[in-house]
């Protein structure tokens, strides 16, 4: 029973990692850009929610509704002002720019909020649990997992059944031809990054309410997100969820054996998948 419990906790943790990874997957799928500051963006959004909750006394669920458009605008601006200028056949400039951004965000947060670890207060649901068959699961982990599924369903709808999604796919396939058809790739990219930042805000809500966070934890979140994307296979959001679950289960199983092995076993699961299926479990995009 303890193993079943561990595995269920791992699956639910995978929902959180899938939320971290979805934004990364979306941006990569559309513009072949890997945002090395992705993890730090999640932490930034968590601080934004924290500030809204602390200064305005809002519930975190309301705060996220205010934070999401702010993060959308931030993502849109970042893409228009900075990232669009460095996109191109050479992968080095966007990598280095987002790496610089990662260091800048971490240290700006450090300056603004100190290195103390913080948590978004969530008195109603903190510690609440419910029975799921023979085992008890936390309400927050369940909500996280459900949110991951909802986010992926909505994003898939947007991508495959709306004009916006059509322009995403067209730009992803061939920006030049898409341009001839009246799609402006640079505008599409900005909307995509904005959308990714909305997902980041949702991920930040769960990151910040479930555990403590501080300005330095972004890079580790980026790594989990990246692993989920690679395991799942590029371009498949459901694959990303599967990747998140694999990392989550590997981590909780590792932690059950020896707490020091939690992170390590997640990394090793990633390397094993990379060894057996270098293109991930459900590859869709070719790149």
């Amino acid at each position: 029973m303890i193993w079943l419990d561990t595995i269920v906790q791992g699956i639910l943790l995978g929902g959180l990692y899938a939320l971290f990874a979805t934004g990364l997957s979306l941006v990569f799928g559309i513009m072949r850009l890997v945002n090395l500051a992705h993890g730090d963006m999640i932490v930034l959004a968590a601080y934004l929610i924290l500030v809204l909750v602390m200064t305005l006394g809002l519930s975190p669920w309301i705060a996220v509704l205010i934070a999401a458009p702010v993060m959308f605008a931030l993502g849109w601006l970042l893409q228009r002002v900075v990232l669009n200028r460095v996109l191109g056949p050479d992968i080095l400039p966007p990598l280095l720019v987002t790496f610089g951004l990662s260091i800048a965000i971490q240290n700006a947060l450090l300056e603004g909020f100190s290195a103390d670890s913080r948590r978004i207060p969530n008195p109603e649901l903190e510690g609440a649990s419910m029975a799921l068959g023979p085992i008890n699961v936390g309400v927050m982990p369940m909500l996280t997992f459900a949110s991951a599924i909802v986010v992926i369903v909505i994003l898939n709808r947007v991508i495959y059944a709306t004009p916006l999604g059509r322009s995403f796919r067209a730009t992803s396939d061939d920006p030049v031809t898409a341009g001839l058809m009246g799609v402006e790739p640079m505008k599409v990219f900005a909307v995509a990054t904005g959308l990714a930042m909305v997902v980041v805000t949702i991920a930040a809500l769960y990151l910040g309410t479930r555990a403590n966070f501080d300005p330095a934890i972004g890079p580790a979140r980026l790594i989990y997100a990246f692993q989920a994307v690679i395991i799942g296979g590029l371009g498949s959001l459901w694959g990303t969820l599967a990747g998140g679950i694999i990392i989550g289960v590997a981590q909780t199983l590792g932690a059950a054996v020896n707490p020091e092995w939690q992170i390590l076993s997640g990394h090793i699961a990633f390397l094993v998948v990379l060894l057996i299926r270098p293109r991930g479990l459900f590859p869709r995009a070719y790149d």
Binding site: V82, L96, V97, S102, I103, A104, E111
Partner: peptide, 10 residues
């Protein structure tokens, strides 16, 4: 310092 370095690199 690091914030400045990051921004200069960008």
């Amino acid at each position: 310092y690091l914030l400045t370095l990051g921004l200069i690199a960008i």
